[in-house]
């Protein structure tokens, strides 16, 4: 299994406590390089908390999050300051409730994602203020990259429209494109298919597959839409009440008794039997 042989991210004994509430308890899993990994589970299982820990919005109470780059360097995400996770560790994310810069144009949204490279090119504003050519070249490149992504998500005609004017599905795609503009090695998507109709959801699958294929970006996604989860993911991790209850290929997870129990519940007379099987 790729997630065991060549993991891009290893989560080890992750624990996140909010006061008395343990949202994530002793969670360990790995994300394979180049895999599409789905993190699923019922509402309140702690999926988004895991995401927030990985992307630096929460500092885990315990545990280790090690990210391995292609060249073998390992970064411990729980020790990086929040903004370095995107810039140094190359982990990008999207949000469950879309967080675009609604008052800025689509193109501006994508350029903000190139903030750090452009900041370097503009000599931390000094060269840029003087209008030196180095910055202009860097900006042109950033615009080219933005155009590439806009063509990919079919929004090139709306590049100069404010992001807040886009329909919902387009906003979702734009948020993914914006995250991709930071050149991530791991892309974390929090419910990318939420609120999409079946056609849009199918387009999303195509987009995610092409991101993995053309850019070699590993994808970790939280999703409730099983057509997305079962259709494109290589590896599924199931959470319930902050702990991992299953981990494997979509096939394995689909037939896992504890997953079925967590999602569907069981008949009254089977409760004891299933609980014994699950180890409760």
């Amino acid at each position: 299994m790729r997630w065991q042989d060549d993991p891009v991210l290893e989560v080890e004994h992750l624990k996140m406590r909010f006061g008395g509430l343990v949202a994530v308890n002793d969670l360990s899993f790995s994300v394979g390089r180049g895999d599409i990994t789905a993190l699923i589970g019922p509402n309140g299982a702690g999926k988004t908390t895991v995401f927030n820990c990985i992307t630096g919005f929460y500092r885990p109470s315990e545990g280790m999050l090690s990210l391995r780059h292609d060249d073998g360097t390992t970064l411990l995400l729980e020790r990086l300051p929040g903004h370095s996770i995107s810039w140094k560790a190359k982990v990008a994310r999207t949000f469950q409730n879309i967080r675009l810069f609604t008052g800025m144009t689509v193109l501006e949204n994508l350029l903000v994602a190139r903030h750090n490279p452009l900041m370097l090119a503009s000599g931390f504003t000094v060269f840029g203020l003087l209008g030196l050519p180095g910055f202009r070249d860097a900006e042109r490149q950033a615009v080219e990259q933005a155009k590439f992504w806009l063509e990919k998500i079919n929004l090139i005609d709306r590049a100069d429209d404010p992001a807040g004017d886009l329909p919902y599905g387009a906003q979702r795609r734009l948020e993914i494109a914006r995250a991709m503009c930071t050149d991530p090695i791991l892309l974390c998507l929090d419910e990318p298919a939420a609120g999409l109709n079946p056609r849009e959801s199918h387009e999303l699958n195509e987009l995610l597959l092409s991101i993995r294929q053309d850019h070699g970006t590993s994808i970790l996604l939280i999703e409730h839409d099983m057509s997305v989860v079962m259709g494109i993911s290589d590896h599924v991790v199931v959470l319930d009440y902050g702990t991992k209850i299953a981990d494997g290929t979509p096939e394995e997870v689909r037939n896992d008794q504890s997953v079925i129990a967590a999602y569907l519940g069981v008949e009254d007379e089977e409760v004891e039997h299933v609980e014994a099987e699950v180890g409760l």
Partner: peptide, 30 residues
Amino acid sequence: VTIRLRRLPVGRAWEALREDEIACRSLGIN
């Protein structure tokens, strides 16, 4: 200077900060 700054990454980061601070952090803006 302000007009220039608006077109530089720092100016865009200011406006992005006004729009959504959390999204800024997720994009690696300090």
